[in-house]
């Protein structure tokens, strides 16, 4: 194992860490990166990832847990070169029925967690004078979504976070970008129910949901050499749903 790792390191194999990488969009990203020959670590909360990935149990709402996860990945693979901050939750409800805890916990898991992992990853990236950070936002961050004030606010917040970091870290060749998917067939959207999904899809110009792999392709592009001059960008991958913002 050690020798294989050493040999792979000699190629362009990068160390990739994906939060929430055991299913949905995160898993699709992990599979894409692995197919490119990268060494892929995925953090997970409830579902452990399939074989072939370095799985790390991690609660992204805890700085200590995030630190321990990075330390584990660094010990196994070396410093993280590509970070995909993807873990996210929803606690939907209309504003008048949304408790402060429902609001705060979604912000914590979706936005503050992105700050935690980006900050931790930046240590190694600054030293390397290189790095790629990709935040998984959502079309609703800029479109808004009735019943998802907490989720939309957290996803919009990622844009300000990414663009500030893009300015702070740009001189060290670290790029920070945002991917904003529309409706994607995952466990998260399946929970919305058929009626809501049909409504969502009807509003999409491409008239269908995305598969997770279609999001992953954009993520791996942003981590590729071809995207070296892209930073602070918000890339919609939403079938046209968000056109105009």
């Amino acid at each position: 194992m050690g020798r294989r790792r050493a040999r792979r390191r000699a190629c362009v194999s990068r160390v990739v860490l994906i939060t929430g990488g055991s299913r949905g969009i995160g898993l699709a990203c992990a599979q894409r990166f692995r197919a490119l020959g990268d060494r892929v670590a995925v953090t997970y909360n409830s579902t452990s990832p399939p074989d072939g990935f370095l799985g790390v149990a991690c609660d992204v709402t805890s700085g200590e847990s995030v630190d321990a996860a990075f330390a584990f990945v660094e010990a196994e693979f070396g410093p993280v070169e590509v970070l995909v901050s993807n873990a996210g939750i929803t606690k939907d409800g209309l504003l008048l029925r949304m408790s402060e805890n429902d609001f705060a916990s979604v912000i914590d898991a979706n936005l503050t967690a992105a700050y935690r992992v980006a900050k931790r990853a930046t240590h190694g990236m600054l030293r390397a004078r290189a790095g790629r950070i990709i935040f998984m936002s959502s079309v609703v961050g800029l479109l808004g979504s009735a019943g998802q004030a907490n989720y939309a606010a957290s996803k919009a917040g990622l844009v300000g976070l990414a663009r500030s970091l893009a300015r702070e870290l740009g001189s060290r060749s670290i790029t920070v970008n945002v991917v904003a998917p529309g409706p994607v067939a995952t466990d998260m959207t399946a929970a919305l129910g058929d009626k809501r999904l049909a409504e969502l899809t009807a509003a999409v110009p491409l008239a269908r949901m995305a598969c997770a792999d279609e999001i992953a392709g954009v993520v791996t592009f942003l981590a590729s050499a071809d995207a070296a001059y892209i930073t602070g960008a918000v890339i919609p991958v939403d079938g046209g749903l968000g056109m105009g913002h």
């Binding site: 240590h123 030293r127 001189s171 060290r172």
Partner: peptide
């Protein structure tokens, strides 16, 4: 040294 260098140095 720029501001980021100084942060790194302090760390």
């Amino acid at each position: 040294a720029d501001s980021l260098d100084l942060v790194e140095l302090v760390m």
